[in-house]
């Protein structure tokens, strides 16, 4: 089982890397915990699973791409 994890913008800089892979995870919260040594997620952090906005307690599956990023500021 492989979960692809991505970080963007200020979160990418804080993590020190843009992506990593995990061998297994139950939820987006579990992905975050495994990727950050169980750091407290920022209050305003957004989560996407397979390019769709998601919640931290949403389940993840084999091959999913899970992304964490700060509030969006385009336009």
């Amino acid at each position: 089982m492989t979960i692809h994890v991505k970080f963007f913008a200020s979160l990418r800089e804080k993590m020190g890397h843009a992506e990593l892979t995990l061998s297994s995870a139950a939820s987006a919260a579990d992905v975050w915990a495994q990727s950050t040594d169980s750091a407290t997620p920022p209050d305003n952090m957004l989560v996407a699973i397979n390019l769709e906005y998601a919640q931290l307690d949403d389940a993840v599956h084999e091959g999913d791409e899970v992304a964490f990023f700060p509030p969006v500021t385009g336009g």
């Binding site: 913008a9 200020s10 509030p71 500021t73 385009g74 336009g75």
Partner: peptide
């Protein structure tokens, strides 16, 4: 678009680089 599309602005200000985190 401003509230949902995943774009992020990093401003290079006189006082240093700054990630905009609010519209």
């Amino acid at each position: 678009l401003k509230h949902q599309a995943p774009f992020w602005k990093k401003e290079m200000r006189q006082q240093g680089a700054y990630w905009v985190e609010k519209n």
